[in-house]
Amino acid sequence: MRVVIAGAGIVGRSIARELLGNGHRVLLVDRSPAAMKISSVPDAQWLLADACEISSLDEAELADCDVVVAATGDDKANLVVSLLAKTEYGVPRTVARVNNPKNEWLFDEAWGVDVAVSTPRLMTALVEEAVSVGELVRLFTFQQGQTWMAEFTLEESSPVLGRTVGEVELPGDTVLVAIVRDDRPIAPSPDDQLEAGDHLMFLSSPDAEAALRTLLGKA
């Protein structure tokens, strides 16, 4: 897979190292000469250019890449890169970094964003997940499909406790994708009985959130 990353700061370089380690080809693009720390990610390709300009994206051969990651520290730049990647080059998948949570509502299909990643929101979610038993916690939002991943830790008073997965009628557009029990993931089967302390991982739509909360006992 060929990935173009706009923004060669700490975030962009970290993503590049992970992708390279997984066998992908990576091009880092940044307009700042100070960001050209080529020795820090020597296996990546590097391009000194403004990723918000068509000529730069032509040089980066965006039409031949599988994924574009907009990872700059500027939300406006990340939106522009995502939009150009989708509308001008037909890139199959775009992932955009959200720096300011107040701008998160902009990172959607209209701006060419498939997946928006908000570091502050993610950190908040992980904190809440660590301390909140019996609370439905959003972990990720996949903007284009209007789908989010959420986690719920079963408490003793949950109405679904002791029931099997097959006995629990989930709201529409909601899927139980995993149960984490004793720090081990379980692929849910209809016969699996739900226990106190189970971490339930759901994929769902925002419209189903209220019904899911009611089902789990958190209306």
Rank of each mutant, 00 (worst) to 15 (best):
T87S: 13
A44S: 10
R97K: 13
T119K: 11
E167M: 04
A16K: 07
S132Y: 04
A130F: 03
S158D: 09
F142M: 12
K76I: 00
Q146G: 14
V98N: 06
S40I: 01
R31I: 01
T87M: 10
K76A: 15
R181V: 01
T164A: 11
L84E: 00
V26P: 01
I38P: 03
V115C: 11
E135I: 00
L170T: 03
D43P: 04
E104H: 13
T164V: 03
A70E: 03
A60N: 08
V115W: 09
G217N: 03
R97Y: 09
G166V: 00
H24W: 07
L212Y: 04
D58H: 14
G112S: 10
V26M: 07
D50I: 03
I5G: 02
A210N: 09
P92N: 07
T87H: 11
V168N: 04
V117R: 12
D207Y: 08
V4M: 12
A16V: 02
P120D: 06
G197N: 14
S205A: 15
V91H: 09
Q45A: 15
R213A: 12
V113K: 05
G73W: 00
S204F: 09
F142G: 05
R184K: 15
V137Y: 04
E61N: 15
F202E: 10
A210K: 14
F140W: 00
Q193I: 10
S32R: 04
G23F: 00
V29N: 02
F202S: 06
R138W: 00
R93G: 10
M123D: 05
A35V: 00
A8H: 04
G162Y: 05
K37H: 06
Q143T: 14
T214I: 07
D207T: 08
T174R: 05
T141N: 12
A60F: 05
S55C: 07
K102D: 13
V160C: 09
V127D: 06
I179N: 05
C65W: 05
G7D: 05
H199D: 08
T164Q: 08
L126E: 08
D198C: 11
D75P: 02
S55E: 14
E109H: 11
R93S: 12
W105G: 06
E195S: 13
E195F: 12
L79Q: 02
A63V: 12
A150G: 15
S82Q: 02
R213M: 08
L212E: 08
L216Q: 06
S14E: 12
E61W: 07
L57I: 01
C65A: 13
L194V: 09
L216D: 02
R181M: 08
A187Q: 11
P185A: 11
S39F: 06
F152K: 04
A196H: 11
L122W: 07
V137F: 06
V113P: 02
M36S: 01
D66P: 06
S158G: 08
T153G: 09
D183V: 05
G217F: 07
A6Y: 10
A210D: 01
G134N: 05
L83D: 01
I5D: 02
